[in-house]
Design a protein around this nucleic acid. Structure first.
Length: 429
RNA sequence: GGAAGGGUGGCAGAGUUGGUCGAUUGCGCCGGUCUUGAAAACCGGAGAUGGGCAACCAUCCGUGGGUUCGAAUCCUACCCCUUCCGCCA
């Protein structure tokens, strides 16, 4: 949620920023509601002041056994008017909040203006030696991850579909072990090398939490909902982890705090059928290790850089080719002010696959979720924290990259070295 | 699923014959005295949100509704938490 003051002070800037993000929330409707709201407040507060003052008089008169009937009758009229105005104020407030919730976060000035993915900026790429020239041998064309998974009996998409429907992967044998190893390796790396604290969150959350991080109200059709209990399956661990501190005031010492946690992630992917649905490329359930930071406002952009660095470190250790993109305004998500995507290379698809998205939300989520901290020093008022998060990383796309980049000419898979202590084997097949 | 208890300021915890209760107190916090420094002790300060944005004013005691001139205090509906019992992993 944006600060209403920003809208009042620079409505044109916000209007343009909303357009740059391809969003259609109305700045004018919000401003209109805001004006009306303040008018009502002025009037109703005056009346309430009268009522408070006169009520004191009434109390005094009664104590002195004097007649107060006239004043009481007078206040009855005032009270009725207050009730009317309060009701209107409640409606205006609700409308204002609704309008504000539909406005996206405003992108940082360093974000390139652009309409879609084609305007994203590739910042750097990293290609490990062992993957170079992998699909240049005409005798042994690379196999894609689905084929490798079937041949080696480690991924069973057909039975996954039987159990739950397409998009619910079933890992078997060494595939299941590899998946588990990957999760543990990533967690350990972030915990031991990057100073994160571990959390293991619930996989379902309530409505308030979904509003807090900005999934609601906009993304409701993309989430699985348990209607009987009014709970949602999380689309990412960002939701429970960021909401840990919802409606709390943190101590100075708790900022910054870095959290790292694994969760399964559930996405309906409504409306995206038909594109890239093969195997792991687009799934309804996947595993992800998530990084979340709560930081001081003045450090959040430095924290974003180090967050990206933490993610890159995992890919370098695993020796997987990747590139880093700075998303343009049109491709930056609703709640984010600046986002880097990290994509891994799939030699079989001949394409980069998004495996991580690292964002600085500034105070947008903190304002929605009411997460503040109290700076030290005299006269210190609570201030909104800045929140950041990034996938560190999603295993589905990573699994594609591992299987395809580590395949041997005879159809086996070499397990990346740092995963071998976790799997207990060095080769699949 | 059954029963009981409870939701108050950063935390803990008082406050029900409705009327200076935004609320006693303790801890924590900030400033000061003392000290080489710190602790302890003592003195003082400080809630949050909103409107003017200075004085000041309004709102906030789980949430909504009601009674009343006036409610943390009375009525009502709902939500959440804790404990116990039953059932199950």
């Amino acid at each position: 949620m944006l600060d209403i003051k920003r809208l009042r002070e620079a409505p044109d800037v916000i209007r343009q920023a909303v357009r740059n993000k391809n969003e259609k929330g109305s700045v004018d409707a919000v401003l209109e509601a805001d004006t009306r709201r303040r008018d009502i407040i002025v009037e109703v507060e005056q009346l309430k002041n009268t009522r408070n003052v006169v009520s004191q008089d009434i109390a005094r008169l009664k104590k002195e056994k004097q007649d107060a009937d006239g004043k009481i009758a007078e206040m009855k009229i005032v009270s009725d008017r207050i009730k009317e105005l309060d009701e209107e104020l409640r409606d205006v407030d609700a409308g204002l909040r609704e309008g504000l919730l539909m406005l996206p976060n405003i992108c940082h000035e360093s974000v390139p203006v652009g309409g879609s993915a084609v305007d994203n900026l590739e910042l750097r790429s990293w290609i490990p030696e062992h993957t170079m020239g992998i699909n240049e041998d005409p005798e042994h064309p690379v196999l894609d991850h689905v084929e490798l998974g079937r041949k080696l009996d480690i991924l069973d998409f057909d039975r996954g579909a039987k159990l739950s429907g397409s998009g619910f992967p079933l890992y078997v044998n060494q595939g299941a072990t590899l998946e588990r190893a990957l999760i543990n390796f990533m967690l350990d790396t972030h915990l031991r090398e990057h100073g994160y604290r571990e959390v293991f969150p619930p996989f379902v959350v309530n409505t308030e939490s979904m509003y807090g991080t900005g999934q609601l109200p906009k993304m409701s059709e993309d989430m699985y909902r348990c209607a009987d209990d009014d709970l949602y399956l999380i689309p990412t661990a960002e939701v429970p982890i960021t909401n840990m501190y919802r409606d709390e005031i943190l101590d100075e010492a708790q900022v910054p705090t870095y959290f790292c946690g694994y969760s399964a992630c559930f996405r309906r992917e409504a409306g995206s059928y038909g594109k890239q649905t093969k195997g792991f490329l687009r799934v309804h359930q996947f595993n992800k290790v998530e990084l979340v930071k709560f930081v001081r406002p003045e450090h959040s952009y430095d924290e974003l850089e180090s967050l990206v660095g933490n993610v890159e470190r995992v890919l370098q250790l695993l020796e997987i080719p990747y590139r880093v993109l700075l998303l343009c305004t049109g491709d930056t998500s609703f709640s984010s002010a600046k986002t880097y995507d990290i994509e891994v290379w799939s030699p079989a698809e001949g394409a980069w696959l998004e495996a991580s998205s690292c964002s600085n939300f500034e105070d947008y989520q903190a304002r929605r979720a009411n997460i503040r901290f109290r700076p030290e020093g005299q006269g210190s008022k609570p201030q909104f924290v800045h929140t950041l998060n990034g996938s560190g990383l999603a295993t589905s796309r990573l699994m594609v990259a591992i299987l395809e980049n580590y395949q041997t000419p005879d159809g086996k898979i070499i397990v990346p070295k740092p995963l071998q202590p976790y799997t207990g084997f060095a080769m699949i097949g």
